[in-house]
């Protein structure tokens, strides 16, 4: 491997100038749209995601699907055709989108208190506007914010983070598209950061078992850091909304 393709330089900086345990800048906003019950926009570096939540509402398309003890969580992942450098042919329906929809559903089902809404359905739609690595993590984080904006009870935040191993030794978090291309394994973790439980873990490529623990720990630490950022955004949003309505409905 040539020197300029190393994931980590000699002085310990990554290609975009970050340190190994540094996240990309996360900026987010809750309540970007009025039509859905909850919506959120999240930027993680250059990756940009919109999420919308509809529900809980009556089950669409026949009541036979309805569950008597829980709500159906329905997720759809879709990518704008202009989101990648090469134009995509279709926004959804390909294998990757279906897989990501399923993974998203898995992560959200673990955290939504769906037993409170029997016979009903909650729709979560995510739309990727710009894909620059860590699409899944950005989607999970945005969906969490949208669910909070919709007022749906959650057990706690669910945050996702990627981690990798640089130079076969140093774990690093929040992998960008450039770093994904250069190679190295990518570990994606969706976790409940407060209790430290893992709801989804996926790994690509290979590295030695001995490294797994430290990479996983880094990813979990990343999830905790992301939770801090999201929590701050939620608190700011609630403060803004609350003060503009004079805290009308709080008592």
């Amino acid at each position: 491997m040539s020197r300029n393709r190393d994931l980590l330089s000699k002085i310990g900086l990554r290609l975009d100038g970050r340190r190994p345990d540094e996240l990309r800048r996360i900026r987010c906003k809750l309540g970007v749209f009025t039509e859905p019950d909850g919506s959120a926009y999240l930027e993680q570096g250059l990756t940009k995601v919109l999420a919308a939540v509809y529900g809980p509402h009556q089950v669409r398309g026949g009541r036979s699907k309805a569950q008597h003890d829980t709500a159906i969580i329905n997720c759809q992942f879709s990518m704008a055709v202009f989101s990648t450098t090469d134009r995509k042919k279709r926004p959804r329906g390909d294998r990757k989108s279906t897989e990501l929809s399923m993974h998203l559903q898995q992560a959200l089902e673990a955290v939504i208190k769906s037993e409170l809404y029997p016979w009903s359905q909650i729709d979560v739609y995510v739309e990727v506007l710009h894909a620059d690595g860590g699409i899944y993590t950005a989607c999970v984080n945005a969906a969490t914010l949208a669910l909070i904006d919709a007022g749906i009870p959650l057990k706690e935040y669910v945050c996702a983070c990627t981690a990798s191993l640089a130079n076969n030794d140093v774990p690093m978090i929040d992998i960008s598209h450039q770093e994904e291309i250069i190679g190295g394994p990518t570990l994606t973790v969706a976790a409940l950061p407060m209790s430290g439980k893992i709801v989804l873990m996926e790994m690509s490529q290979r590295f030695h078992m001995d490294h797994l623990e430290k990479v996983l720990n880094k990813a979990l630490q990343g999830c905790k850091d992301i939770r801090q950022i999201l929590d701050e955004a939620v608190r700011l949003h609630v403060r803004d909304i609350g003060s503009s309505t004079g805290w009308a409905n709080t008592s």
Partner: peptide, 16 residues
């Protein structure tokens, strides 16, 4: 021209 109706707009746009 290519138009994509995102499901974010309304759940009716889900899938196809």
């Amino acid at each position: 021209f290519f138009v994509d109706c995102s499901a974010n707009a309304t759940p009716d746009f889900e899938g196809r």
